[in-house]
C-alpha cells in the first residue's frame, strides 16, 4: 500500500516535470538551442499564480483551475519576449550564444522575482481543492489527481495540436529542418515564436501545478532545469515522448529514493545515475533523436 502511495506521488511529480521537459525539448527541436531559462520560467509561472490568486474573487477552494488559463496566456507572452530578446537576434551565432543569453534571462527572472517576492517559499492555491480522497485504503490528495489530470490534458492537447492541425504540421516541419521548411513556404520565424510561447506556457502550467504542494522560491529554477535536462538526456536528446517518459522516471526515482533515504541522497543518486548513463549510453535510454546539424 505504501508503495502504491509513493507511485501516485511519483506520477504526480513526474507529470509536472514532464511539462517542464516538454517545453525544453520543443525549443531544442525548433532551434537546436538549449533554453536554460526553462527552469526559471517554471518558477515565474508559480509566482505568477501566487500573485494572481488574491485577485480572483472566488471562494478559496477553487482558484487554481481558474488561474490556469490566465497563467498559460501570460506565460506564453513571456515566452514570446524571451524569443525576441534572447533567441532571434542570435540565431546565426553558435548555439552556445543562446545558451548564455537564456542563462542571462534566467538570472534576470530569478533575481527580479527575489526583489518582488522576497526569498521565502510561497504556495499557490490548489487546483480544485485541498482535501484527501479515500480510495480503498489509499489516501489520495485531490491535488495529486488534479496535477496528473491537468498535465495529461495539456500534454494530450499538445499532441493533438502537433499531430492533427496545420499549425502543428508547420511547427514539426520547422523542428525537423528549418531551411527546408522555409523553402516550402513555412513562416519559420513565426513558428519559432509560437514554439517559445508553447514552451513557456508549459513551464507556467508546471509552475502552477508544483507551487501548491512543493512551494516555490525564486531560486527553484536551477533544480528544475537540472531535472528537465536530465529527463531529456535520459529520454534521448530531442525525443518528445522520451522527455515525458524520462520525466516520469526521474520523478519516480526521486520519490522512491527520498522515501528510503533523503532528498539530498536522491538527488546525489540521480546525478550519479546520470553520469553512468552518459558514460554507458550517451544516446539516452531510447536513442538520440537529434543529430548534428550542418
Amino acid at each position: 500500500m505504501a508503495a502504491l502511495q509513493l507511485l501516485l506521488n511519483g506520477v504526480a511529480l513526474g507529470a509536472a516535470y514532464a511539462l517542464v521537459a516538454l517545453g525544453f525539448v520543443l525549443v531544442l527541436n525548433a532551434t537546436s538551442a538549449v533554453n536554460f531559462a526553462q527552469g526559471d520560467l517554471v518558477m515565474a509561472g508559480g509566482l505568477l499564480a501566487v500573485a494572481l490568486a488574491p485577485l480572483i474573487p472566488l471562494p478559496d477552494a477553487l482558484p487554481g483551475i481558474v488561474l490556469l488559463p490566465l497563467v498559460l496566456v501570460l506565460m506564453a507572452g513571456l515566452g514570446l519576449l524571451l524569443a525576441l530578446a534572447a533567441y532571434l537576434p542570435l540565431r546565426r551565432r553558435p548555439p552556445v550564444s543562446v545558451f548564455i543569453s537564456t542563462i542571462a534571462v534566467g538570472i534576470i527572472l530569478q533575481n527580479g522575482a527575489a526583489i518582488l517576492f522576497g526569498p521565502e517559499p510561497r504556495a499557490a492555491p490548489p487546483l480544485i481543492g485541498d482535501g484527501t480522497l479515500r480510495l480503498g485504503g489509499l489516501a489520495v490528495p485531490e491535488q495529486s489527481l488534479a496535477i496528473v489530470a491537468v498535465a495529461a490534458l495539456l500534454i494530450g492537447a499538445q499532441q493533438w495540436l502537433f499531430a492533427r492541425t496545420q499549425l502543428g504540421r508547420r511547427l514539426r516541419a520547422t523542428a525537423q529542418d528549418p531551411e527546408m521548411a522555409r523553402a516550402c513556404g513555412v513562416p519559420v520565424t513565426a513558428m519559432i515564436l509560437v514554439t517559445f510561447a508553447i514552451a513557456a506556457a508549459c513551464a507556467g502550467a508546471a509552475g502552477l501545478l508544483l507551487a501548491n504542494r512543493y512551494f516555490v522560491t525564486p531560486t527553484a529554477g536551477g533544480d528544475l532545469i537540472l531535472k528537465a535536462y536530465i529527463a531529456v538526456t535520459v529520454g534521448g536528446w530531442g525525443s518528445v515522448p522520451g522527455a515525458v517518459v524520462g520525466a516520469l522516471l526521474i520523478a519516480l526515482f526521486e520519490v522512491g529514493v527520498s522515501s528510503i533515504l533523503s532528498y539530498p541522497a536522491a538527488l546525489g543518486a540521480l546525478y550519479l545515475t546520470l553520469l553512468a548513463i552518459l558514460v554507458l549510453r550517451p544516446q539516452g535510454l531510447f536513442g538520440e533523436a537529434v543529430r548534428r546539424r550542418g
Partner: peptide
Amino acid sequence: VGLAVLRLASHYFALATLGIAQVLHLLAVN
C-alpha cells in the same frame, strides 16, 4: 566527472557540470 563526459557533445558537459554544483550545495547544507 571530466573523464565521464569529455568526449560528449557540449550540452552534456554543461549538464554534468551543473549537476556537480547542485549536488555539492545539497551536501554542504546537509
